[in-house]
């Protein structure tokens, strides 16, 4: 066992963690914005909105993210108007931005379906009660529909976020030196792929496990009403078991 090698590899891969997190964060953030738009379009009840979102979800869920990434990075520059555009070109010639765009568009398709399901799962009785109270549409959404839907969407959303962490590794195929790209480079230099990839794998796994824990904790905090009541005389646990 060559501990120095493991340590130095671990350290080099860890130094690329901020870049991975940057891709991850912006991919998720923009994805969330697009997904919100899509969900709104779908829920608005317009025929056009429904067809558009259906087509969007079909295309982005039905094809591999790698194809979408290549299409955005290599494909779109084929258009002259893209290359001459002062706004599009600086984004689409940069592999980093392209990865973020591809990830955001891709995750938005999955997330919009999650949100749609969550909105539909809000009990009708709650909405009727809110209407009976004379709440305006906005208040109803803000105080009743949204909080319930968000809580219902959380488990599926956390799965999607973990899929996104895994997807950041694809940035390495378009030359970004994030964790996977760095691991690839070390592996080619040393020809010790098993050791190097194991180091990277440990970091990815720890990252995903902590994300999963974090979401489990948020879910626990947001659903106190679903927990069994404490037995008579039992101490109420202040720290949830999920942590």
């Amino acid at each position: 066992m060559d501990f120095d090698f493991y340590l130095s590899t671990m350290w080099s891969v860890l130094k690329a963690l901020p870049l991975t997190l940057e891709i991850w964060f912006f991919g998720i953030a923009f994805g969330l914005v697009i997904a919100t738009g899509l969900t709104w379009l779908r829920a608005s009840g317009h025929k056009f909105g429904e067809y558009f979102t259906r087509a969007y979800v079909f295309v982005f869920r039905g094809s591999p993210l790698l194809v979408q990434l290549y299409l955005i990075y290599f494909g779109l520059s084929q258009f002259d108007f893209v290359r001459h555009s002062p706004i599009l070109w600086p984004i689409l010639r940069d592999p980093m931005y392209c990865t973020i765009v591809a990830m955001a568009l891709n995750t938005a398709a999955y997330e919009s379906e999650i949100f749609r399901g969550a909105l539909r799962a809000v009990p009708v009785g709650q909405i009727e009660a809110a209407k009976a109270f004379g709440m305006s549409a906005f208040t109803r959404f803000r105080l009743v529909t949204l909080p319930i839907a968000l809580r219902l969407a959380l488990p599926a959303y956390s799965t999607e976020i973990i899929l996104m962490t895994k997807a950041t590794a694809l940035a390495s195929v378009v030359t970004i030196m994030e964790m996977m790209g760095t691991a690839q480079k070390i592996q080619h230099d040393t020809f010790r792929p098993i050791e190097v990839l194991t180091c990277a794998g440990v970091i990815y796994l720890l990252l995903n496990l902590s994300i999963a824990r974090l979401f489990a904790w948020v879910e626990y905090r947001l659903s106190p009403h679903l927990r069994p009541p404490p037995e008579q005389g039992q101490q109420v646990k202040l720290v949830p078991e999920v942590l």
Binding site: I162, K166, L170, A183, G201, Y204
Partner: peptide, 11 residues
Amino acid sequence: RGEPELLIIYL
């Protein structure tokens, strides 16, 4: 399920 697919394939 927690590792990037690419990493498993390279491995």
